[in-house]
Amino acid sequence: MSRVKEFNTENSTAGAETRECVLEIKDLRKSFGTNKVLNGFNMNLYQGESLVVMGKSGSGKSVMIKCVVGLMEADRGSIKILGKELTHLERAALDQLRAEIGFLFQGSALYDSMTVRENLEFPLRRHAARMKNDADTETLVLEALESVKLAHTVDLMPNELSGGMKRRVALARALILKPKIILYDEPTSGLDPITSKEIINLMQEVQQKYNTSSLIITHDVDCARVISDRMVLLVDGINYAEGNFKELSQSVDPKVRAFFK
């Protein structure tokens, strides 16, 4: 019997099964000492979908997303990205697969010794071959910056940017290889409500423009309400509940309700 509480799945995942599954996580387990952070987490992300994973601080959201990009090794379980099993990949193949995944870090993680231009050029260095039939580097950098409305910052250093601008430049860097999947780790944390709203709008624009699939880790209910097609609640290391925002927010389950108070 499934532990997952699905809320009106007919509506929330309507049409999802007919789309290509770009990310499939099965029975993911990860412990730190005796602390079981992920205890059999399952999740699917479909092409063009915005999936929000919500959980309390320390619930293992960031651990899960780091396992997805290979920054952490899971103790057990399977992660399949674009049909490739992550745990079986060699370093070179993993790097190639990473070109299909954009990652927006919680603190932006811009390289502070490089200009905005160099930050955006950095991912292109490793994947130049993949880009050889595309426009030249300069065009790609400017195009990515224009998509986050920051083309004028191209020669600035990260310490000359505000928190919101850093987050947008980081998003441009995540987009520069035109990935099929974008992973957002707390995209609005530490930002004021107005800047948060700008970032959320930008995420929606990016999704429409590039037709990417988005996996968003957050505990910001407003962000989840606006951007999610579907949500997964991560509680006690498992996908405790799944559904769309409306369904989950109307749930009577106390553990689910706790997220929407």
């Binding site: 290979g70 190639q96 995944i101 950095f122 490793r126 860097r173």
Partner: peptide
């Protein structure tokens, strides 16, 4: 200090994710 700061601000992770060792 430089690498430590890069580690705690996730810049090293960002490098790894971008396909650079």
């Amino acid at each position: 200090a430089e690498l430590g700061s890069m580690r705690v601000t996730e810049q090293i992770d960002a490098m790894e994710v971008s396909g650079t060792n």
